[in-house]
Design a protein around this nucleic acid. Sequence first.
DNA 1: TATAAAAGCTACTAATTAGTAGCAAAATAG
DNA 2: CTATTTTGCTACTAATTAGTAGCTTTTATA
Lengths: 206, 206
Amino acid sequence: MSILGKLSFKDQAFKLRENAILDATTMILKDKGFDLMTMDDVASAVGISKPSLYKHFKSKEDLVGEAMIRLIDGAGDFLDQLDKDLKPIEVLSAMLEWALRVRLEGGMPFLPSTSAHVRDMLTRNLKYVGRVLKLNYQLEKLVAKAQKSGDLDASLPSDVILFSYYSRTCDPAVEFLQRYSKLDNEQIIKHMLQVCFAGLHGPRCD
Amino acid sequence: MSILGKLSFKDQAFKLRENAILDATTMILKDKGFDLMTMDDVASAVGISKPSLYKHFKSKEDLVGEAMIRLIDGAGDFLDQLDKDLKPIEVLSAMLEWALRVRLEGGMPFLPSTSAHVRDMLTRNLKYVGRVLKLNYQLEKLVAKAQKSGDLDASLPSDVILFSYYSRTCDPAVEFLQRYSKLDNEQIIKHMLQVCFAGLHGPRCD
DNA sequence: TATAAAAGCTACTAATTAGTAGCAAAATAG
DNA sequence: CTATTTTGCTACTAATTAGTAGCTTTTATA
């Protein structure tokens, strides 16, 4: 069946549960954040005991690190399977759209920037840092190309564009709109993309 | 001296210390966030003991609520003293510029959106909610006028504009740029304003 | 059915921290 | 100089929670 079909039933079950744990972690992280998420929360959401949880992940930091890595890998996979003929700006737009959709469907927790504590923790996680650097490298190249072709503002430093772009993936306006407006998810995505690329002024000549 | 000059020296000193406590709270909130900020942190930053701190504020929630209220009041004061002849879009731009400058100078902690816990806490704080609603009302009117005059995109729902505008005041891109780019504070402000209003595409016709 | 091994759990520990009781020191008044 | 009040502090408590020791149950095997 799988490429490594040698996994016993037991090991398959183990892997399955590991995924269930990461799913629960992602959801809890999303609405409580790192500091308020307890290992008991995670264990009981999955329906196992805390010591069983520790059979899979050796610490809270490790668990959260793996959850974040899985998210980044999801982004990387999405990027890799995009049509190679798309223009850089179209790739950037598609990635942001994907990230917003994942978030609106409850998948993505708030990203590191939020708290110095969490940022430091992730910075110490070499596996995580490696993934971030790789993805960042790919996005940097896309931004540079899009600036050259005039699809992104060439007068802005590329740092500014890249960091602003990242910030849009975790823009709190998304949660506010979901909670307080009557817009549905697809409308929210459409408007957020427009605001990101065309700004609040909207497209115009002057 | 003051309008209520009846304050005794003792009461003046009390008021002064209260301000010092709020300053410390704001700074600590900024870099540790609510959950990791301890009352011992605040007390020792001010150079007093924890029980003395509790003479001023009856709980951690109360303390943080007052710090947030002071921030909002600062924004309200700034808004009120702006030139009445400015166009709505100029007022919005000036307010955002002010907020970014306050943040870059270390003043403003991350806003509520960050964590459900903090948001709930502030929602229960009626004094805080009152201030927010008042400021929000003023900004809503400015957005509506700017949309009518064509300075803000009239095709976007006003919710989307308002929430996106709020999000820019606590955009994590600011901290990233301050930490990892070579831009100085004024350059960061200029670029963030441009990205907010003109977007990542930059101004253009199509 | 008896035995061995694995999986999972209850119930603990050590550390942290919001909030407080009650004492000590200083200032003020008589 | 003594009495009273105010101010501030040390040292506690109760609650929470990451992480673990060691027992119990289940499963697999012979």
